[in-house]
Nucleic acid binder design. Structure first.
Lengths: 225, 225
DNA sequence: GTCTATAGGCTGATAGAC
DNA sequence: GTCTATCAGCCTATAGAC
């Protein structure tokens, strides 16, 4: 079976495949070790690709980092906008926001940790192309909450603080999953591990109860739309 | 006034002063740039101390990092234990936990970010001395919530998920404050900046509402203990 | 597009003077 | 305890063969 003809076996694996392998391996490495801790040699080894490919395809380590941010934010922002502009009550939108966030994480499991590090760095690597995308995500919850308050469906909370408490809990949860898994595996957490879906549900309940408008003394229908 | 006798002017500034300056500067640098990104030269410059002092006082960069974790966790753990063992209802304890957390951050503003990076790294730098302290902090909220559920004061939530949502929001908020401040300063956040106390209050309200036991149809006193 | 070999720069640590 | 000078190791990037 022509084992020797490696190039043929790999097909047109080249460019696209190599680039994706590098981006995936790099996202994990940046998440685990930070920008400076993730060496190009480590990233290339994990991606099973020659390290010179990083310069060839992305113009260097910085370019690879940037490509990951852009290719992850772009589709995420589209979905966030669609949700924000959907014609639904705010409480439904917030519930769906949590689901959407979890869905995005399922596609890019290490992105929350990588992005969290970026934010901790004061956004040092976010240029004029990335920052607007980041700010759009930043505004989604805020705008949904503001709308819910205007309509009287939610109690009068600060939209920015609400955003921070919700997205903070979500990012933290998903970004820190590797350590929890390690602690579970070593028997250092004397509780049972719950799947991510349990946390999603927990957050949806906390948000629903935490933001619900105070019930009037004895109003019958605050149920429907 | 004997300006030339520097050693006299500095008094017994030596050891203690130098060590504290290094730990403070290093905590900020580790928070901002990560372990690998924070070079010993940068840390020493910020501390206005010679970089050789890092090896002399802490045995190297790693030792400095470890010393910061230990000296910050030790007193924090004591306070957490005292709170957990205090004889108060769970809802009061949770409220005070948030205050306690904010108080600790006021003393060590960059520790949340540094610790968050540590967790993102899978706890790579936490040895047998640090890990138990970390796990104690990890268990405080969990145990308070478990107690509150047993007593019927809180609804039946998962204590671990509750811990993660609360501490995740808190850590995220304080760790990411520098970026928000930058965005505010650049006019990129079209909202007014709130002081940290506002977020503390927000979290306390979210927790109180999110965890409160369902009210029985018309029970008069679910107030007292 | 991929790989090897290497150049050039930066980093953490420390010997030795004070 | 502090400082200067120095070094070995590691890192990113790239030239050039294939």
């Amino acid at each position: 079976m022509q084992e020797s003809r490696k190039k043929k076996v790999r097909g047109r694996q080249g460019s696209v495949f190599t680039k994706e392998a590098l981006m995936s391996a790099a996202a994990a490495a940046f998440a685990d070790r930070g920008f400076d801790g993730a060496t190009v040699e480590f990233i290339a080894r994990k991606a099973r690709v020659n390290k010179a490919m990083i310069s060839y395809h992305f113009g260097g380590k910085e370019g690879l980092y940037h490509a990951i941010l852009l290719s992850t934010f772009a589709p995420a922002v589209e979905r966030m906008k669609a949700l924000r502009d959907s014609d639904q009550p705010a409480d439904q939108q917030l519930k769906q926001f949590v689901d959407l966030f979890a869905g995005l994480v399922a596609r890019q499991p290490r992105f929350p940790a990588m992005m969290l590090r970026e934010v901790l760095s004061g956004g040092r690597h976010m240029d004029e192309e990335i920052l607007p995308l980041f700010l759009t995500v930043f505004s989604t919850v805020r705008e949904i909450v503001a709308k819910g308050i205007r309509s009287g469906q939610l109690r009068s909370v600060d939209p920015l603080l609400t955003h921070l408490s919700l997205i903070g809990a979500l990012v933290f949860y998903f970004a820190t999953e590797p350590l929890r898994d390690r602690l579970f595996a070593e028997g250092k957490l004397p509780v049972v591990k719950q799947p991510p879906a349990a946390f999603v549900k927990h957050m949806q309940e906390m948000v629903a109860r935490g933001l619900a408008a105070e019930l009037p003394k004895d109003a019958p229908g605050s149920t429907g739309d």
